[in-house]
């Protein structure tokens, strides 16, 4: 791990419980600027919960803290956190089925468009049109990059799964994120689609230096693209380090494969 990089997100002592179930207990880790951090762990380990805490969708216990851009994220509203350029790629399909691919991506630009209802009524004579056209240029770049030109005007609800995931990714990119949270972006994809997605993630990471937190089950992908791995098991952090360190860590091997002799 490159120690010279500044800390982008400082997660310390995060605990979260639903009723009696403790989803996370005292999880701490640092996400450094520009790195791809992967959170791995068995099912139900609290990986998605961790992302939801960063997004402000779940409210972690107040004794912990998540500091990002000098702001305490715990207690902030989800859409206010989005204003800090935190984007999210969802598990499963969470695109807007009734909109075209283009509109889905444009929705990602929602926060950067600064006009109100009245301006939207008078499209041609207001700043709405000018802003929309400016953003449209950026959206087209993303569409080119993700190779989804052919489905630009297709309703997302009618698209195949792999393409919808790509639209979801594009929508997150449209937010021009500084921090990108990816929740199983490759789940349910075939090898070729996975390779494409991994390539997109690496390209974004290289070109824009976007800090990313990735939750993924495919160990091959994680080992290949992650700079830094955090392993969760039953809501506790059991390991933290580079892919090489993690792959040799006996605790991790035990958590994944079961301990010998038990």
């Amino acid at each position: 791990m490159d120690e010279k990089k500044a800390v982008a997100v400082k997660v310390s002592d995060i605990s979260l419980s639903f009723g009696g179930v403790r989803a996370l207990s005292d999880v701490s880790f640092d996400v450094h600027e520009g790195e791809i951090l992967a959170i791995i762990g068995p099912n139900g380990a609290g990986k998605t919960s961790m992302l939801n805490c960063i997004n402000g969708f779940y409210h972690a216990d107040r004794k912990g803290s998540i500091v990002y851009k000098d702001r305490e994220l715990i207690g902030m509203k989800t859409y206010d956190i989005a204003k800090l350029s935190v984007a999210r790629v969802f598990q499963g399909i969470q695109t807007y089925g009734g909109m075209t691919t283009l509109d889905n991506l444009m929705t990602g630009m929602h926060l950067t468009l600064d006009y109100g209802v009245l301006a939207s009524f008078f499209y041609f004579w207001s700043k709405a049109k000018k802003q929309e056209m400016e953003k449209r240029r950026k959206i087209e770049d993303i569409i080119d990059f993700l190779e989804i030109k052919h489905i630009r005007k297709a309703y997302v609800g009618e698209l195949a799964y792999g393409l919808r995931k790509r639209v979801d990714f594009g929508r997150a990119l449209a937010m021009e994120p500084d921090l990108l949270l990816l929740d199983e972006p490759m789940a349910g994809m075939n090898l070729e689609e996975k390779e494409d997605m991994a390539r997109f993630i690496l390209d974004v990471s290289e070109e824009k230096q976007t800090t990313m937190v990735l939750v993924e089950h495919d160990m091959g992908v994680v080992m290949d693209i992650a700079d830094h791995i955090v392993v969760l098991d039953f809501g506790k952090k059991i390991a933290d380090g580079t892919p090489e360190q993690i792959s040799k860590d006996p605790v991790v091997i035990a958590a994944y494969l079961g301990e010998e002799g038990n």
Binding site: M99, D103, M106, T107, M109, H110, L113, Y115, G116, V117, A119, S120, F121, F122, Y123, F124, A128, E132
Partner: peptide, 9 residues
């Protein structure tokens, strides 16, 4: 007009 701007989206 509204439906093709951010409000409609």
């Amino acid at each position: 007009n509204m439906m093709r701007t951010k409000i409609g989206r």
